[in-house]
């Protein structure tokens, strides 16, 4: 089965959950910016949860399938259309051979994910299919998708085959869908919960107050490596030269400009700027889905609360998996 890229749009890349285990060699983790949405997409089409899908940024990405596919579109609402008709998100979809899927642009959020039953058949490099363009590894030929690229799709399991067939017979899309508001709401302003960063106490009192009470705006300097915010400048009480240390997704670094940069999926493995905060894992999908000019406030929470939120999301996923399993496999699947 094949997917033909007709137009890459702003940026479309193949991403899974990223490269784990080689950061000590400087290998960037990369992976989906909004892993939760990719994960739910994979659950909807009965893939393993970390299977690679297509991460679509902003708008314009268009592809055609040359064989029938079972897909799910999750993440931000980039107004997907199939053969000119709006196609609903957060549910399994039958994509007929010869159909074209395109993304008109964001109604909410920034990144949509297309999960494809059978997965995208590209080789794993250093343990992952995620595209990491700088090192030219992962994804399709180590780069973002371009016009004319053809992606092979893996073999379908019996379950996936059955689900696809029952969807095909339905002649319409399922009338049920994932309640995704628990993952992210796609709002123009968000409250992002953070833990105090390692160097939080080194920042001036004024800067600490600004960070925790002020509003910060996402600038257009936002890509898969980092999101730069503008707002009241953040300064250390006294400048200190810091040694490079490990960083992770959601680390909020403050360079000399005083503008906080939140490190995203394709961040470097180490960084040397003072860290004022660390976004909690449960809020990373919300963060990733912010559009430029969105406003955020940062709220400091405890590590216990951060963990509790993560477990809440996991409970949500567990229940969702059961619900989807029952919907799609017990007898009369799909309404």
């Amino acid at each position: 089965m094949t997917i033909k890229i007709k137009h890459p749009g702003v940026q479309a890349t193949i991403q899974d959950f990223g490269r784990i285990g080689a950061q000590k060699y400087g290998i960037v983790v990369s992976g989906a910016m909004d892993k939760m949405s990719l994960r739910i997409g994979n659950i909807l089409v009965h893939n393993v949860e970390h299977e690679a899908g297509i991460e679509v940024m902003f708008y314009g990405t268009t592809f055609e399938c040359t064989e029938d596919l079972l897909i799910a579109i999750t993440g931000g609402d980039l107004q997907p259309e199939m053969d000119g008709n709006a196609v609903p998100m957060w549910r399994p979809i039958f994509m007929k051979e010869g159909s074209t899927l395109t993304f008109k642009g964001p109604k909410s959020g920034l990144l949509a994910y297309v999960a494809i039953a059978g997965g995208i058949d590209v080789p794993e490099e250093i343990g992952s299919k995620s595209t990491f363009s700088k090192a030219r590894i992962g994804g399709y030929k180590g780069r973002a998708l371009q016009t004319g690229d053809e992606l092979a799709v893996g073999l379908l399991s019996d379950t996936q085959d059955k689900v696809m067939q029952s969807l095909q017979k339905l002649h319409t899309h399922p009338t049920w869908y994932v309640n995704a508001t628990k993952v992210f709401a796609g709002k123009k302003s968000e409250k992002i919960r953070v833990l105090k960063g390692s160097e939080y106490e080194l920042f001036s009192e004024k800067s600490q107050t600004a960070f925790t009470t002020g509003t910060y705006t996402l600038t257009p300097q936002a890509d898969r490596m980092g999101y730069t915010f503008s707002g009241d400048a953040l300064r250390l009480s006294t400048w200190e030269e810091l040694l490079s240390e490990g960083v992770t997704y959601g680390t909020i670094q403050v360079p000399a400009s005083g503008k906080p940069i939140v490190l995203m999926a394709e961040r470097q493995t180490t960084g040397g700027y003072p860290r004022i905060g660390q976004v909690i894992s449960a809020d990373l999908p919300k963060l990733a889905q912010l559009q430029p000019n969105s406003q955020v406030t940062f709220e400091i929470v405890s590590i216990e609360e951060a963990e509790k939120e993560l477990f809440r999301l996991e409970d949500f996923i567990e229940e969702l998996k059961l619900g989807i399993y029952l919907k799609t496999t017990t007898g009369g699947m799909t309404q």
Partner: peptide
Amino acid sequence: DTVCVLEAMKLMNEIT
């Protein structure tokens, strides 16, 4: 026509 949704197991079900 959809008249409401019922949420069950984190899925929204359109009721017609």
